[in-house]
Write a protein that binds this DNA or RNA. Structure first.
Lengths: 168, 168
DNA sequence: CTATACTTGACTGAATTAGTTGGTTATTAC
DNA sequence: GTAATAACCAACTAATTCAGTCAAGTATAG
């Protein structure tokens, strides 16, 4: 998984779409205007989102895009995976002979190490559903930097410093 | 936070460094040989790691790099933040007037939304310490794709599919 | 003094990002 | 049917980042 502004754009656009769901198809021009994203760039992103079966399109006047699934079944991970093409993350293509270390371990650690670290991040972002973002956005349109901190349970390992507000 | 191969290289290199700690300073040439990373690219990365006070350098013959902190106080997040320059993540530079939505909410959602999502990922990666990676690497040099899945507690929300092995 | 090894800076080709231009289809409204 | 709408599609572009090269330094051990 990669994590760039591209994914951010996509998440933003999808959140906008979710916020206006139920009002019929949403046009990309509308999203472009509201979120200040280039229309043609949005088209590229939505081509991928459509291929990934995250959105459905309606052509012609009155057309636009709809979410292909309910908001609680669409995660941030889904979106990012759909738009960011996958990463290589190994320079040994499955071979077992990529060490000059003295032979302590047979496979290079790079591969599996990051692969699993990756899985963890994906697991995490899969837990953040569009529905949660919509709800936060609706109930609290203007919020401080810490208001979404507590979206997921599971970060109970660490006490956050005093200034932070837990919303959940 | 960004997440590219650059950060991967850095994490790999730091893990290599950690694995050879206690044997005196480690040279970049050694890391380059073992991990098959270009020496000059490593130099760039370690320049940033040094500025970020994650490593200390010893010049001259017999020199090299040492970790600046104990392995249990060095997280994956520290490394990635040090080498990947920060992302913009807002197109309204703190202004309050970035909507054409009809004025429902005053600030554009993009900014705070991703900011806090970001914080969550950082929080998560901050929990993965070098010491854990070293230990996994030492006790189980060759491991399957699922062996690091359970590094962190906290993903108890979701049952993983049957094939996966939990190591922790 | 000399070899080692870190340090710095400028520079490069390739890839990716973000965006543009210019079309073509499909569908609705008139 | 024809005009308007809006998704689709392909090629092309400027700017940035990635990954790596090259060439100089400077500090230190022996």
């Amino acid at each position: 998984m990669r994590l760039t502004t591209k994914g951010r754009f996509a998440v933003t656009a999808m959140l906008d779409l979710a916020l206006h769901a139920g009002e019929g198809p949403v046009t990309l021009s509308n999203i472009a205007d509201r979120q200040k994203i280039s229309l043609s760039y949005l088209e590229q992103l939505f081509a991928k989102l459509r291929r990934g079966a995250l959105v459905e399109s309606v052509r012609g006047p009155g057309g636009g895009y709809n979410l292909a699934r309910p908001v609680d079944q669409l995660s941030v991970a889904d979106i990012i995976i759909a738009v960011e093409e996958p990463i290589d993350s190994r320079q040994c293509e499955g071979k077992e002979n990529c060490l000059g270390d003295g032979g302590e371990h047979r496979r290079c650690m790079t591969h599996d190490l990051w692969e699993s670290l990756n899985d963890n991040v994906i697991q995490f972002l899969s837990g953040v559903k569009l529905s949660e973002l919509v709800q936060k956005q609706r109930t609290q349109p203007v919020f401080g930097p810490a208001s979404l901190m507590k979206i997921r349970p599971g970060n109970t390992t660490k006490r956050r410093p005093a200034g932070d507000i837990v919303v959940a």
